Amino acid sequence: PREAYIVTIEKGKPGQTVTWYQLRADHPKPDSLISEHPTAQEAMDAKKRYED
């Protein structure tokens, strides 16, 4: 089974940042970016789909 994890990042100019959620996995390479999402819920949904 595949495993993934969610990383929170800040995008934008200082003082005007927006939080994004990255879905990452250690396949095919360590810390590979799988997808980016504007909400934590979307990231969790993507994580479930990826791991299923």
Rank of each mutant, 00 (worst) to 15 (best):
7 V>I: 11
15 G>M: 05
6 I>P: 00
36 E>C: 11
11 K>T: 06
47 K>S: 02
18 V>M: 10
16 Q>Y: 11
14 P>V: 10
18 V>A: 08
20 W>H: 05
48 K>Y: 08
2 R>D: 06
48 K>W: 08
30 P>L: 09
10 E>V: 13
46 A>M: 04
6 I>R: 00
36 E>K: 02
42 E>C: 06
8 T>W: 07
42 E>Y: 03
52 D>V: 11
40 A>T: 06
5 Y>H: 07
27 H>S: 11
46 A>G: 03
36 E>N: 04
36 E>I: 07
6 I>H: 00
14 P>Y: 11
11 K>H: 07
41 Q>P: 06
28 P>S: 06
32 S>I: 11
39 T>D: 05
5 Y>C: 05
26 D>R: 14
25 A>N: 06
49 R>C: 09
44 M>S: 08
52 D>N: 14
20 W>Y: 11
17 T>V: 09
5 Y>E: 02
17 T>H: 07
6 I>T: 01
13 K>Y: 12
9 I>M: 07
20 W>C: 08
44 M>G: 05
40 A>L: 15
23 L>G: 00
11 K>L: 08
26 D>M: 12
51 E>K: 07
12 G>F: 04
49 R>H: 09
27 H>Y: 15
33 L>W: 05
37 H>R: 00
50 Y>Q: 02
39 T>M: 03
14 P>K: 10
2 R>E: 06
50 Y>L: 07
38 P>G: 08
44 M>H: 10
23 L>W: 01
20 W>I: 08
34 I>C: 03
7 V>D: 02
35 S>Q: 01
30 P>E: 08
35 S>N: 02
5 Y>W: 15
6 I>Y: 01
5 Y>I: 06
2 R>F: 12
8 T>F: 07
42 E>H: 05
36 E>M: 06
31 D>L: 06
23 L>A: 01
44 M>R: 11
8 T>G: 05
31 D>R: 11
38 P>F: 07
41 Q>C: 10
48 K>G: 06
2 R>W: 13
29 K>D: 10
33 L>G: 01
21 Y>R: 00
2 R>Y: 12
35 S>T: 03
41 Q>F: 07
14 P>F: 10
26 D>I: 07
20 W>N: 03
25 A>Y: 04
19 T>I: 14
47 K>P: 00
25 A>P: 00
38 P>L: 12
44 M>Q: 12
50 Y>S: 02
18 V>I: 12
8 T>Q: 12
20 W>Q: 03
7 V>F: 05
28 P>R: 08
8 T>D: 04
38 P>D: 06
39 T>F: 04
9 I>L: 07
8 T>V: 13
2 R>Q: 08
1 P>A: 13
39 T>Q: 03
15 G>S: 06
17 T>P: 07
25 A>G: 08
20 W>D: 02
37 H>M: 01
33 L>I: 13
12 G>Q: 05
19 T>V: 12
5 Y>F: 10
6 I>C: 02
11 K>E: 05
27 H>K: 11
51 E>W: 06
51 E>C: 07
36 E>G: 02
19 T>H: 07
31 D>Q: 10
7 V>H: 05
30 P>N: 07
39 T>R: 04
12 G>Y: 05
3 E>P: 10
19 T>K: 11
3 E>I: 15
13 K>V: 13
14 P>D: 13
42 E>M: 07
7 V>Q: 05
10 E>T: 12
6 I>E: 00
26 D>V: 10
41 Q>I: 11
31 D>W: 14
48 K>C: 08
31 D>F: 15
32 S>F: 12
4 A>C: 15
48 K>I: 11
33 L>F: 11
23 L>E: 01
42 E>R: 04
35 S>P: 00
22 Q>V: 04
7 V>A: 05
51 E>Q: 12
39 T>V: 04
41 Q>K: 13
28 P>G: 07
7 V>S: 06
11 K>V: 10
46 A>Y: 04
25 A>D: 04
30 P>Y: 09
10 E>S: 10
26 D>A: 14
4 A>I: 10
10 E>W: 06
13 K>W: 12
9 I>H: 04
16 Q>S: 12
29 K>A: 13
9 I>T: 07
33 L>P: 04
19 T>N: 06
13 K>F: 12
46 A>E: 04
52 D>S: 15
42 E>W: 02
24 R>S: 02
42 E>I: 04
32 S>M: 09
44 M>P: 00
36 E>T: 07
31 D>M: 11
51 E>N: 09
10 E>P: 05
5 Y>R: 14
47 K>I: 04
41 Q>G: 08
27 H>C: 12
32 S>E: 06
5 Y>M: 04
43 A>K: 00
25 A>E: 04
25 A>I: 14
48 K>Q: 12
46 A>R: 02
17 T>D: 05
10 E>N: 09
52 D>Y: 12
37 H>V: 01
11 K>C: 12
40 A>W: 15
4 A>K: 01
23 L>T: 02
18 V>L: 08
22 Q>K: 00
45 D>T: 08
23 L>F: 02
22 Q>Y: 03
10 E>R: 08
4 A>H: 06
38 P>T: 12
9 I>A: 05
9 I>S: 04
15 G>Y: 06
9 I>R: 04
15 G>A: 05
20 W>E: 04
19 T>P: 08
47 K>L: 13
45 D>V: 11
14 P>Q: 11
1 P>C: 13
44 M>I: 12
27 H>L: 08
24 R>A: 03
38 P>R: 14
8 T>Y: 06
26 D>N: 15
20 W>S: 05
34 I>N: 01
45 D>H: 09
50 Y>W: 15
31 D>E: 09
26 D>C: 14
7 V>E: 04
41 Q>Y: 07
31 D>Y: 15
1 P>T: 13
12 G>K: 04
34 I>H: 03
24 R>T: 05
15 G>R: 03
45 D>P: 00
51 E>T: 08
8 T>R: 12
14 P>R: 08
38 P>S: 10
29 K>T: 14
14 P>S: 08
46 A>L: 01
32 S>H: 15
5 Y>G: 01
1 P>I: 14
52 D>K: 13
51 E>P: 03
39 T>G: 03
34 I>A: 01
14 P>W: 07
46 A>I: 01
25 A>H: 05
27 H>A: 07
50 Y>H: 06
12 G>E: 04
52 D>M: 15
51 E>L: 11
52 D>P: 06
21 Y>T: 00
4 A>L: 14
32 S>R: 15
16 Q>C: 15
15 G>D: 07
33 L>D: 01
21 Y>S: 00
19 T>W: 07
32 S>N: 08
45 D>W: 10
19 T>F: 11
3 E>A: 14
42 E>Q: 09
4 A>Y: 14
16 Q>A: 13
29 K>L: 14
32 S>D: 04
34 I>D: 00
34 I>S: 00
44 M>V: 10
36 E>V: 07
26 D>F: 07
45 D>N: 10
40 A>D: 05
16 Q>E: 13
15 G>C: 06
47 K>M: 10
16 Q>D: 12
43 A>H: 00
39 T>N: 10
40 A>R: 15
32 S>A: 07
27 H>I: 12
2 R>L: 12
44 M>A: 12
49 R>W: 11
9 I>P: 01
18 V>P: 02
20 W>V: 09
35 S>M: 01
43 A>S: 02
45 D>K: 11
36 E>Q: 06
47 K>C: 06
35 S>C: 05
24 R>Q: 03
20 W>T: 06
26 D>G: 11
4 A>W: 09
2 R>M: 10
